[in-house]
């Protein structure tokens, strides 16, 4: 089943075109990794999918409905689409638990007890059972990002967008976050992931898309992209980022 289908997506800021002719289809249980240099349009693409940015051409269809139609209420779409940001963006004035139950309670109308129970289960699964009552500032970067992941998962979204969620973390903390993303992938969570972690993309992705100058230059299975890329641009990029 196709969860998300993007065709001919174009996005520009004034004269600067940041995404052009982007076609992308995401089926249920897919993990699509977007790779490419900084400024290649990975984050902008995710922001367009979440309707945080107005697109300039093309169609975004989510669960069979065109959500790029101006009449669609973006909040209704975002209720079924989770997003995690590079800088965690946890609310500093709320405890971890309250961060996680805010949307289920206020947006989805889940009773407090049920919301807290689900949040506690997810927090425990991510090794944060002890941290539910503390405020985000007391956590390490890795713990904060895991909490942000839990916050996005608490509303049980059909699609999870992860925007370079390990880019702000120390190398030693990257592993603990990616391990959880890997577990989510193994459970069949549908995800679109912008990442700089090539080893992760290779291991977890069902499909890898290489973006360059706002275009998906090449997409395919991780094996195809990492071992036998067709395009010269992809080869250049991989030479620079892969060790050896």
């Amino acid at each position: 089943m196709t969860v998300l289908e993007v065709t001919g997506l174009r996005k520009s800021y004034a004269d600067k075109v940041v995404l052009r002719d982007v076609d992308l289809a995401v089926d249920a249980h897919d993990v699509v990794c977007l790779i490419g240099a900084s400024g290649s349009g990975k984050s902008t693409l995710l922001r367009c999918l979440n309707l945080l940015e107005k697109i300039d051409d093309g169609v975004i269809a989510f669960e069979g409905e065109e959500v790029s139609d101006p009449r669609v209420d973006p909040r209704r779409v975002r209720q079924r689409m989770g997003m995690v940001f590079q800088a965690y963006n946890l609310f500093p004035h709320l405890s971890v638990l309250d961060n996680c139950t805010l949307a289920p309670r206020r947006v989805h109308g889940v009773p407090r007890q049920d919301a807290e129970q689900r949040a506690r289960e997810l927090l425990a699964r991510c090794g944060l059972a002890e941290k539910a009552e503390v405020h985000p500032d007391r956590l390490s970067g890795g713990q904060q990002q895991r909490a942000a992941l839990v916050r996005a998962l608490c509303t049980a979204p059909t699609l999870l967008l992860l925007d370079e969620i390990t880019a702000a973390l120390d190398p030693e903390l990257v592993g603990e976050v990616l391990q959880i993303v890997g577990e989510l992938a193994a459970d069949g969570t549908t995800m679109v992931v912008a990442t700089h972690e090539m080893a992760f993309a290779r291991e977890v992705a069902t499909r890898v898309c290489f973006l360059d100058e706002g275009r998906i230059v090449e997409q395919g299975t991780p094996e195809a992209i990492f071992t036998a890329p067709r395009e010269e641009r992809t080869r250049q990029f991989l030479r620079r980022v892969l060790p050896g």
Binding site: R10, V17, D56, D57, G58
Partner: peptide, 10 residues
């Protein structure tokens, strides 16, 4: 770049 019909409608 020519906007698509879909985009013009939008």
């Amino acid at each position: 770049y020519e906007p698509s019909v879909h985009e013009l409608n939008r």
